[in-house]
Design a protein around this nucleic acid. Structure first.
Lengths: 178, 178
DNA sequence: AAAAAAGTGTCCATTTTTTAGACACAATGC
DNA sequence: GCATTGTGTCTAAAAAATGGACACTTTTTT
């Protein structure tokens, strides 16, 4: 199911022209667009405003384009708001950087120049995915299944690693039909 | 803490020379190395053997290098063994492909030609990370925190989405010190 | 600004789940 | 072949979850 409007997006890029272009490109999709040319105040903003998605450029130090800045701020954001999706965007496309970004918790990785339609589609996908909030039981089932798999069927070990008794593990497996 | 030996690795690549090179490169790190030149039988193998890590090439159709084959098999493996780490490796480095691979559940994305030391280090990292099995309570705490964050503090909504009563949510928050 | 709606924090008694410990009986390892 | 480790099931006691209630506060609507 697609939504009409996708809430508030925070866009951070040190290039004003790009901020303008993004604002225009995203205006049809988001109810509210906050743009920032520096990531310094991002944590303050996130504590003051209700933001649903962050679109974060990766390079803010002139002449440096390793993406370290972006990774730093990505991690800072995700540390304080683990559920807030962050999409990275950079002109210096690099497989290694993309891998590190995603492993650090980014929801997607966009390269400049971007295609407007594709960008909007990706952002929508991210927000649609973020909406699926699994129930505690579903989460539990999943985790239990993984634990048993990881222990190659050794129930005692699995229960130990899960921090519950073996009997409780049997109970849950019956109840959750694992 | 580092382990001495890292169990069994399954390596899948259609180039025999690469398999030989990888076998040599990984022999010091893994107790057992299974090599396959085709991914067709991978699910059968995984049901028969205890495998701790899969290193999967992304292109198996001659002349086609979109990585679709790799993504297909990655998804097949992860569908049946969600806890088994899969590392992708490809000669056709492409940011988009890396993103899709990681979003499909790959643990890392290596480009050919690879650096032996770096490859071994990355594979070790993946296995060390896979070893951290969170306890059920830790998992729960995490999920609860996220739910509350996502509901911007609305406890009733958070409890609903978690599939528990509001009182139980309060209980858990007290017990888990959320 | 008043009324309606939604959310909060805390209580209760009842039902359900988890726990530690025990048991006889497979597997597995050396 | 014996020792260790794991399995599945059973208790009784402790702990947690449930639906429902309550007076109160905040938010939304009109």
């Amino acid at each position: 199911m697609q939504k009409d409007k996708y809430g508030t997006i925070l866009v951070i890029d040190d290039n004003e022209a790009i901020l303008t272009a993004l604002r225009y490109c995203l205006s049809g999709t988001f109810q509210r667009i906050i743009t920032k040319s520096s990531p310094d105040s991002v944590l303050t903003i996130l504590n003051q405003e209700v933001v649903n998605l962050v679109l974060l450029d990766m390079n803010f130090s002139i002449g440096v384009n390793t993406g370290q800045d972006g990774l730093f701020w990505l991690r800072a954001i995700r540390k304080h708001h683990p559920e807030l999706p962050v999409v990275l965007i950079t002109a210096y496309a690099d497989v290694n950087l993309a891998v590190r970004g995603l492993k650090s918790g980014a929801s997607d990785f966009i390269t400049k120049p971007w295609d407007n339609d594709e960008l909007v589609r990706k952002l929508k996908d991210v927000l649609d995915a973020a909406d699926d909030m699994a129930t505690l039981d579903e989460m539990e089932t999943d985790h239990i299944r993984r634990a048993i798999d990881r222990c190659h069927g050794n129930m005692k070990l699995a229960a130990e690693q899960l921090g519950i008794t073996r009997q409780t593990l049997y109970n849950k497996m019956k109840k959750l039909e694992v």
